[in-house]
Design a protein around this nucleic acid. Sequence first.
DNA 1: AAAAGGTATCTTGCGCTGCAAGGTATCTTG
DNA 2: CAAGATACCTTGCAGCGCAAGATACCTTTT
Lengths: 107, 107
Amino acid sequence: MAESIPVQLKKGVLELCVLALLSKGDGYAYDIASQLAEGIDMAEGTIYPLMRRLQDEGLVATYLAESPSGPPRKYYRLTETGRASLQSQKAEWSAFARAVNAILGEG
Amino acid sequence: MAESIPVQLKKGVLELCVLALLSKGDGYAYDIASQLAEGIDMAEGTIYPLMRRLQDEGLVATYLAESPSGPPRKYYRLTETGRASLQSQKAEWSAFARAVNAILGEG
DNA sequence: AAAAGGTATCTTGCGCTGCAAGGTATCTTG
DNA sequence: CAAGATACCTTGCAGCGCAAGATACCTTTT
């Protein structure tokens, strides 16, 4: 039982958010980190290992592009796999949030 | 910026749920773990260090009581500090969930 | 032209915590 | 008495977010 909500959920929230942002358009790590730092508390140092992981898992692909001001940026683009993963992780998040709210609500 | 949502949030979901359950009445570890295993995916081995931590932080107090069937149980009761912490953690959870949903929703 | 500061990448070492697995003890049931 | 549920706890491992720092590019200030 349980089983429906995988352990990865807790560690997967950031991953989910990154995928969600990328679904709106390609982006580079520094910018993604900045956006997430506003809503959620995220340090910059966290993003690079994360993006590496996403790439290793085949959820994103990368390409380089020049920056109007600063060093070249490494852009990330969602792959088909990434898009699918986003959908399922979204569902997992909803289920998790519902479960937590249920526990809190019964109080 | 950010700052409102502490890092502890991610690790604090389980803690929050435990506190919420205890706010409904005293409980013992094994039972709490069972309840949480249903809604959230939680292993039994996780609960004991967690309860120890809560106790060290002064959020819960303990007392022993016999069981109608089985070994004696160590019951946990919310302290005043624990109740206060529950409230603030609840608020943090709400803010966090809202932030995540905002990111997902914009997609 | 040198210094300063923002942009952008990445690495290293650390600490926390959830997990799997196993261990012990109690009590009930067959 | 053996089997199994209940209930406690410990140990070792692995993942991941974080702080801090290194590197490098480019613009702006002095």
